[in-house]
């Protein structure tokens, strides 16, 4: 099977970085058990670089993994789509990982595909789609607007993951100043307000009782597996308040009230910090519409207090050999809830 150009460049870059000892690990993707479901890979040896792949199913956000390398001072390389980059910037701004320990391998992302959606769109019969998806996966960018599968034209948008339909950041934030571009930057994306907030607006249009029923029904399903938190790249605390056994904010009982406490806590903590990567919903085994909650808050924050600032590294990457462990050369994260303006709107009298 042919190897696409991005994968080619990725492998070469990884090999060079590892061989020269510039980085200790390259975080990217490798083929998983099923085609169309590549999994995160942690490549530590140059000879393993050929395991790396890049294709249209590399949706998982890799930024979270850099937190595993907080201890230590070696560099790590990370393959970064727009949402990985946004999350990395947040993590750097939160002073959880210094920029100078990162080698950012940027990829322009036209939106990642969801295996199930592609199969549906192509009308693939059960059990017959592995080979077909492998074919799609082989190309980094299968056809700009669509591709042919199972003899049918499949539009790209039909196969996109929902979070990618809403995407406004196909490339890493400029302020992150990627070290290597593995592809051309992707063209800008301008989702419609309906795509961005249609589901939020639909809930807002309901009566408060209806909304209550909707969310109670949803939160009743929660298993409290914490997958949404564990996968979230902006949940970058060392210890989670929800695990605080001493204060016991969150009770141990798995009931609706505690589930609600859990999700309201998470919603307030990612409000304005969420990068929209949608990992929480993907990880949720019971299908909670979590990003609806987070998008509602991000939207309201922006409406109330103006655009939510992304943490932005300063001009130029921090000089090599900058103070160990310090986030030198990087601005501190701004969070809409830890700043204010004197003339903020006031609805309380």
């Amino acid at each position: 099977m042919t190897v696409n150009a991005v994968t080619e460049k990725l492998r070469q870059t990884a090999r060079d970085l590892l061989q020269s000892g510039q980085v200790g690990v390259v975080i990217g993707f490798e083929d998983g058990r099923f085609p169309g479901q590549p999994r995160p890979a942690f490549i530590r040896r140059a000879e393993d670089a050929d395991r790396l792949v890049w294709n249209a199913f590399c949706g998982a956000n890799l930024a979270k993994y850099v937190l595993d390398y907080r201890v230590g001072d070696g560099k790590i390389a990370v393959v970064a789509k727009g949402c990985d980059g946004a999350a990395l910037a947040r993590i750097i701004g939160d002073q959880q990982f210094p920029r100078q320990r990162l080698v950012v391998l940027a990829v322009g992302c036209p939106g990642m595909l969801d295996a199930g959606r592609v199969a549906d769109a192509a009308g693939l019969p059960d059990g017959a789609w592995d080979a077909a998806l492998a074919q799609v996966a082989a190309a980094a960018e299968p056809g700009a607007d669509g591709f042919e599968l199972n003899g049918k034209p499949v539009s790209r948008s039909a196969g996109l993951r929902p979070q990618c339909v809403r995407c406004r950041q196909p490339n890493v934030p400029a302020a992150l100043e990627p070290d290597v571009w593995l592809s051309e930057p992707a063209p800008e994306r301008h989702p419609s307000p309906d795509q961005l907030y249609g589901d939020v607006a639909a809930l807002e249009a309901m009566s408060v009782e209806e909304r209550g029923r909707f969310w109670e029904e949803a939160f009743s399903r929660c298993l409290r597996c914490f997958a949404c938190r564990n996968v979230c790249p902006v949940c970058d605390c060392r210890e989670c308040v929800l695990d605080d056994a001493q204060t016991r904010w969150l009770g141990k009982a798995v009931n609706l009230a505690e589930n609600q406490f859990f999700h309201l806590t998470r919603a307030m903590h990612v409000a304005g910090r969420c990068v929209g990567c949608g990992q929480c919903e993907e990880a949720c085994p019971v299908g909670l519409p979590l990003t609806v909650l987070y998008r509602k808050l991000s939207h309201d924050l922006e409406e109330l207090f103006g655009p939510v600032e992304m943490p932005a590294p300063q001009e130029g990457k921090a000089a090599a050999g900058a103070a160990e462990g310090a986030a030198a050369g990087l601005e501190k994260a701004e969070w809409a809830l830890t700043r204010f303006r004197l003339n903020d709107p006031d609805e309380f009298d």
């Binding site: 002073q95 959880q96 970058d236 605390c237 210890e239 462990g325 501190k332 994260a333 830890t338």
Partner: peptide
């Protein structure tokens, strides 16, 4: 338990919160 994110720093009106480096065994 502090992760050192320093988001507490901007809310302090007295500039009483500063980053500090601690030693720890991990």
């Amino acid at each position: 338990c502090c992760a050192g994110c320093m988001l507490c720093e901007p809310v302090c009106p007295y500039h009483a919160i500063r980053p500090e480096t601690i030693q720890e065994r991990v």
